[in-house]
Amino acid sequence: MEYRLTEPFTKEKVSAFRAGDQVLITGTIYTARDAAHQRIVEMIKRGEELPFEIKNSIVYYAGPTPPKPGYPIGSAGPTTSYRMDPYAPVMLDLGQLMMIGKGQRSAEVKDAALRNGAVYAAAIGGAAAVMAQSVKSAEVIAFEDLGAEAVRRLYVEDFPVTIVLDTAGGNLYEEGRAAYLSK
């Protein structure tokens, strides 16, 4: 199936998605990768104010290349998600709606997504120039010292992702492979 996801982003909307569905996202999403996740989770523990509202947020595991003059962003594909596994459950328990990255997740992340009604989607790894075309604006909102790893607020239009983990326990990496092997 193909869906469009627009604001406001809600758990109800993503609960319709199933593993393998293609979703075009339009709205505000946030980039964060290893170092930013570490800092955000430390801030949560200390009870500090966070760079963005975690509840119902979409977090894109990505560190783009610097924008060339006249462009909002450089290339912006996904990074491998498992490195965010130690941090993701904390964010999901605070109501994060969607994680976007690539690759397998830990059992803890799958459980945390399921119990919170959140989803995990994949962007095409190594199609970073294609992904960048959907990013209309980008602004560093936290941890500027981290360079590529800073948290950015992106406004995206028809940003293409594929659902990997859905709210019914579906897993594209298992189902897609099994479907091909039993063809």
């Binding site: 690539k102 690759g103 994949a122 990496y173 091909y180």
Partner: peptide, 10 residues
């Protein structure tokens, strides 16, 4: 193995 491009199968 059937992993395929991006692990989606293939």
């Amino acid at each position: 193995l059937g992993i395929g491009p991006q692990g989606f199968g293939g």
